[in-house]
């Protein structure tokens, strides 16, 4: 899952910024963990993740990748060649050109608030839930792959071969596009995403960005964090500290 930065320049263009914190801080406070299963999700929450690149080791990132594969059932495609293989979450090395500092990033769909993948989708298959989780509605996806081209993070994959024995909670099929779902099937049950659960430290925090009492909100208020390619103003749900 190693990936080099040849196609798009991932070098962070802003220095560590407090903009993310300001946006988060203005959110609505929610105190209870309502059982959301029976009622539609609302925009009173915004799910997000904070990845501490100093604490998260390379092995930790590898663990996240395997946890994702195991949970969602991707990665054992038999006929797809190298670049056709799905990659919902990747390990990425970024180098600060000035200092030469190398950081390892776990990169998945950033669950943008203004997602370009949704803007370009001709069928409304690419969609954002009210709570900020960006998904592909495979019932509507025609496999045109516009969204793959539009995504600045190269976060989406196209399924190139017929599949069987998918996970019950994660339908996947040939001719449709897929990407990190933030383990929406678990989040809707009040659980955390599989990759977050695989990390045995607070190197990766998952939670409601708007909830002032949540760990992620509080951490984002106190540490410097950044969005990758913050210059694009997509207001990503996945944030990084230590880069």
């Amino acid at each position: 899952m190693n990936k080099t930065l040849n196609r798009r320049d991932f070098i962070k263009t802003t220095s560590a910024t407090t903009i993310g914190v300001a946006t988060v801080a203005s959110g609505i406070t929610l105190t209870t963990f309502a059982s959301t299963n029976k009622v539609p999700v609302t925009n009173e929450k915004r799910w997000g993740m904070l990845i501490d690149t100093n604490k998260l080791t390379e092995a930790g990132i590898d663990g996240m990748v395997s946890a994702c594969q195991e949970e969602q059932g991707w990665g054992s495609e038999l006929h797809s060649t190298g670049s056709q293989k799905p990659g919902w979450i990747k390990k990425l090395k970024v180098k600060d050109k000035a200092t030469g500092k190398v950081s390892n990033l776990a990169l998945m769909c950033q669950h943008c608030e203004e997602p370009p993948c949704v803007d370009v989708c001709p069928t409304n298959a690419s969609m954002k839930r009210e709570d900020g989780i960006v998904l592909v509605d495979k019932h509507l996806c025609i496999g045109c792959r516009y969204c793959m081209m539009a995504c600045p993070y190269d976060a989406r994959s196209f399924v190139h071969e017929a599949l069987r024995n998918q996970k019950e909670h994660m339908p996947r099929g040939k001719g449709t596009v897929e990407s990190c779902t933030m383990c929406v099937h678990k989040v809707d049950k009040g659980e955390v995403p599989a990759c977050v659960a695989s990390v045995n430290s607070d190197a990766v925090i998952f939670g409601d960005l708007y909830d002032a009492s949540s760990k992620i909100n509080q951490t984002l208020r106190t540490v410097q964090s950044a969005q990758i390619r913050a210059d694009l103003n997509l207001n990503t749900g996945v944030r990084y500290s230590g880069i």
Binding site: K38, P40, R129, E130, D137, H139, V184, H185, D188, K189
Partner: peptide, 15 residues
């Protein structure tokens, strides 16, 4: 099924 799939996927209703 169609009604249910939209509610589940788009609104997170998981009954």
């Amino acid at each position: 099924l169609r009604h249910k799939r939209d509610k589940t996927l788009r609104q997170g209703v998981r009954t």
